[in-house]
Design a protein around this nucleic acid. Structure first.
Lengths: 221, 221
DNA sequence: AAATTTACTAAACATTGTTTAGTTTGTCAA
DNA sequence: TTGACAAACTAAACAATGTTTAGTAAATTT
């Protein structure tokens, strides 16, 4: 009876685990297919039917894994925020507050330009109209902004920046890196390719100047 | 024979003019209806059928005035650029280059926040996938950017800014005001309303600091 | 008055997201 | 192993979309 009992549990658990695994695999297939289609021709190109054809299932099956099309994009967005937050954490090892904040800005723009589609979904497009019923879904986004404010505060505490208003300064810095990123992503065609690197570099130098502002004034060249 | 000839022309011209007038009126009706729907619930809410119902014509009629839905939005975009350029021109009366450039930035953000939908169509959304076959369609956009570069150059010539690179500096400034504008428009819900004015003001002060950078260093408080 | 052009529309088409109702397959107690 | 049950999947249909076609009625020209 003991063996029978255990085998039952073991069997159940094995099956249950496989089922969870299968479900996650299926979800991933859908997300991968959606991202692939989005990459190729944008939001309009991502149809449930095309996703279904890509993963070789019927359209109806997709609705067993995602409530609707919106949820698919919302999930992709969440994945983007997760990756984004992880990459941003990497700068926290830098001790010097100014260097850290500058690196933070660089990582931000780097992420945006290396993950254009994610960035688009996260901060530009309004397509997957946000589902902000659960605040926790927005968590990594909030965490990222908190991280920025924390790093801004370190600089202000160390005597940098003209203003001592953390909130406003953080917003201004965010605006700057977001502006650089989104213009390059959405209006990149306006700028010749050979200029782009130069422009990013130049913009980041200006970012450095903003952060360093107070210090440089006292130096008085 | 003379009178017959002239009356013919006059008659034709009257009819022709009325036809042109009618056509323009109809186009305006369509555009107004589209904008009204867009305002209420965004791009997804603007359907040809709803526009048709609003203006009390059949859906097919709309296709006599616009090639497709895209062209409707493209036209709205062009109207936005026109308004945008006109408003920006107003700062050109300011003689002092620094004051002029700061005012330019203020007018930019002001336009964006007062014409959120236009700004969205012009610089954020990718929905009306751009029709850039004719460069002239993009003219007022280019003019606006040229205006900015001109104003940046005046400041650089007058000894402001750390960098002497007009192209990069102009892009950085554009990034900044675009970042402020687009974040407020698209992610405004993240910021309590009572902070918004404060944040805009603070950001514009930072903009002023960037522009004034060289000057302030030599002053050395 | 006849011919022609213009302004308009009803009806249809293909494509979309999504639901329903049902089938097939897998799981498990007996 | 078998019969009941649940899980996984799908064909077919639905309503809404952008757009086209083929045609009508009115305005205009000849």
């Amino acid at each position: 009876m003991f063996s029978k009992f255990t085998t039952l549990i073991i069997k159940n658990m094995g099956i249950q685990e496989r089922k969870v695994r299968n479900r996650k695999e299926m979800e991933k297939h859908v997300l991968d297919a959606a991202m692939k289609l989005y990459l190729k021709e944008g939001y309009k190109n991502v149809t449930i039917r095309k996703i279904a054809k890509t993963i070789e299932y019927s359209p109806a099956t997709i609705y067993l894994y995602f409530k609707d099309k919106e949820e698919i994009f919302f999930t992709l967005q969440k994945l983007g925020f997760k990756k984004f937050y992880t990459e941003q954490l990497s700068v926290q090892t830098i001790k010097d507050p100014v260097k850290r904040l500058i690196a933070h800005g660089e990582v931000y723009v780097k992420f945006a330009l290396e993950n254009k589609e994610y960035y688009d979904l996260m901060f530009i497009t309004s397509e997957p109209v946000f589902m902000f019923k659960d605040r926790k879904d927005w968590d990594t986004g909030v965490n990222s902004y908190d991280l920025l404010k924390q790093n801004v505060k370190s600089c202000i505490d160390a005597g940098f920046f003209k203003s001592k208003d953390v909130e406003t300064t953080a917003f201004a810095l965010w605006s700057f890196v977001h502006g650089v990123s989104s213009l390059l992503i959405k209006r990149g065609f306006m700028i010749p390719d050979e200029f782009k690197k130069h422009i990013v570099k130049g913009s980041l130098e200006i970012l450095g100047q903003i952060i360093n502002s107070k210090q440089q004034i006292t130096i008085n060249k």
